[in-house]
């Protein structure tokens, strides 16, 4: 058994929320550079160049890449041989978010109640997903998620008979209906299988995968490539103003499901796809 003080988790989260919001990860930046070269629309090309320039300014001047610094979505993988000491884990996580968003000059975008809508003032609470895994380490991933792209995400319970064609249609329809709103070029996270809530979580986790990485399953690898091509054929383009680059990547995650079910969730992410990880 290894003791780990929750204060270390708090400090890590505080650092990660700020870093994730100021520094675009290398995989996204590289994908944007490739896209800027490839884009045929003049307006689209210029938008991509400006987006790349924006990332550089944000990093150099320690400014948020985007003013929507998001909901703090936090994934924790806690080794089963870790004993957390020094306080309440959830309070430590939220304290990290609170300090990061306040001291890092990030926008506070969380309202306390979905209908009464009073801002909590410190971007808490975070949305937290915890997995218990083997080992004595704690892996923390912070993925601030903007509202514009989250609002265009969808989930559907397909019939098993709809099959792969039904899945493709639903993914493409979701991107088409989203149009310019999720700030294309987007990353498309797809969760297939499990139950209603499991599919949504799979789709969110799919967004964490490195852009440009291959799906280890050959079937889903080729489905990802096919969907990416079909999405880019929609012509939506950067910012929805027309072009060849609508998505930078499609990532699929799957899970076994019920004999009667085929849940599919599509979680869209804008081009400011932020995620930072640390292992304690």
């Amino acid at each position: 058994m290894r003791n780990l003080d929750v204060n270390e988790i708090k400090n890590a989260i505080k650092t990660l929320v700020v870093k994730a919001n100021q520094e675009l990860s290398t995989d996204i930046l590289n994908a944007l550079k490739v896209a800027a070269n490839y884009e045929k629309s003049e307006v689209g090309k210029k938008i991509l160049q400006r987006v790349i320039e924006n990332a550089q300014i944000a990093k150099d001047e320690e400014l948020p890449i985007c003013q929507d610094t998001g909901t703090a979505v936090i994934f924790l993988e806690i080794g089963q041989d870790v004993h957390l000491v020094g306080g309440n884990l959830h309070e430590a996580i939220n304290q990290g978010v609170r300090e990061g968003y306040t001291e890092g000059y990030l926008r506070k975008s969380i309202v306390k109640d979905p209908l009464n809508r009073i801002n909590t003032g410190d971007n808490t609470p975070a949305v937290v997903h915890i997995d218990i895994v083997p080992g004595d380490r704690v892996k923390i991933t912070v993925a601030p998620k903007g509202g514009g792209s989250e609002n265009m995400s969808q989930l559907k319970m397909l019939k098993p008979a709809d099959g792969v064609e039904g899945v493709k249609q639903f993914v493409i329809d979701t991107v088409r209906q989203a149009g310019s709103n999720p700030c294309p070029p987007i990353i498309v996270g797809v969760g297939i299988g499990g139950t209603f809530e499991k599919a949504a979580l799979l789709a969110k986790k799919a967004l964490l995968r490195e852009v440009g990485s291959q799906n280890p399953d050959p079937f889903y690898n080729s489905l990802e490539k096919e969907l990416l091509e079909k999405i880019n054929n929609l012509g939506i383009g950067p910012q929805g103003l027309g072009g060849r680059v609508t998505a930078l990547a499609v990532h699929i995650e799957t899970y076994p499901t019920h004999i009667a079910s085929l849940p599919v969730a599509v979680n869209l992410n804008c081009h400011v796809a932020r995620h930072e990880t640390v292992i304690l």
Partner: peptide, 8 residues
């Protein structure tokens, strides 16, 4: 441009 808040 959405997502270019630093530049703007």
């Amino acid at each position: 441009i959405g997502g270019a808040g630093a530049l703007l």
